[in-house]
Simulated assay, not measured.
Amino acid sequence: MVSDSLTDSFEALLRRDPNTPAIADVDAWWQTHVEVTDGASPAAAAVLGGFAADRLAYAFASGYAAALRQLIGPDEAPRRRALCASESEGAHPSKLRTTLTLDEGGGGSITGDKSFATLGHLADELLVVAVTGQDEQGRNRLRVARIPPTREGVSFGQPVSPTFVPELPHVPLSLREVRVEPEELIPGDGYLSVLKPFRTLEDAHVFLAVLGWLTKIGRHVGWPDEFVERGLGLIAGLTCVAASPSPLSPAVHRVLGGLLAASKEHIVRLESSVAWQALAEEDRVRWARDRRLLEVAGQARAARLQAARDRPQ
Rank of each mutant, 00 (worst) to 15 (best):
S3D: 13
S3P: 00
A12W: 14
R16C: 10
N19L: 11
T20S: 05
I23L: 14
D27M: 04
W29C: 05
Q31V: 06
Q31C: 09
H33Q: 06
H33W: 09
H33A: 07
T37M: 02
T37Y: 02
A45K: 00
L48P: 00
L48F: 04
F51T: 01
A53V: 00
D54V: 04
A57N: 05
A61Y: 02
Y64F: 15
A65Y: 04
A66F: 07
Q70A: 15
L71V: 01
G73K: 04
G73L: 10
D75W: 12
D75C: 12
E76S: 15
P78T: 13
P78Y: 08
P78C: 10
R79T: 14
R81E: 11
S86C: 09
E87Y: 08
S88C: 02
A91V: 02
A91R: 11
S94F: 02
K95L: 12
L96V: 05
T98H: 00
T99I: 12
L100H: 11
G107Q: 09
G107I: 11
G107A: 09
T111M: 03
D113V: 11
D113M: 06
G120I: 01
L122Q: 13
E125L: 13
V128T: 01
V129E: 05
A130S: 15
V131R: 14
T132V: 13
Q134I: 08
D135F: 08
Q137R: 13
R141Y: 01
R146F: 05
R146S: 14
P149Y: 04
R151E: 11
R151P: 11
S155N: 07
P162Y: 02
F164A: 07
P166A: 08
L168V: 08
S174K: 12
S174I: 04
R176Q: 14
R179L: 15
E184F: 05
L185D: 09
I186Y: 04
G188A: 07
D189Q: 01
D189C: 06
K196Q: 13
P197S: 09
P197N: 11
F198P: 03
H205M: 06
H205V: 09
F207N: 14
L208N: 03
L211K: 04
G212H: 10
W213A: 04
T215P: 00
I217G: 00
R219D: 04
R219W: 05
H220K: 13
W223C: 11
V228N: 02
V228I: 15
E229R: 11
R230S: 14
G233I: 01
I235K: 00
G237W: 04
L238K: 01
T239M: 13
V241W: 03
A243L: 12
A243Q: 14
A243R: 10
S244M: 06
P245Q: 10
P245W: 10
P245N: 07
P247N: 04
P250N: 06
A251T: 13
R254L: 15
V255N: 00
L256F: 02
G258K: 06
S263A: 15
R269I: 01
R269T: 09
S272M: 11
V274E: 14
A275K: 05
W276F: 15
A278T: 08
A280C: 05
E281G: 08
E282T: 15
E282H: 09
A288N: 13
A288T: 12
R289F: 07
R292E: 12
R292T: 10
R292N: 07
E295A: 15
V296I: 12
A300T: 10
A300Q: 12
R301V: 01
A307G: 03
A308E: 01
D310V: 03
D310H: 02
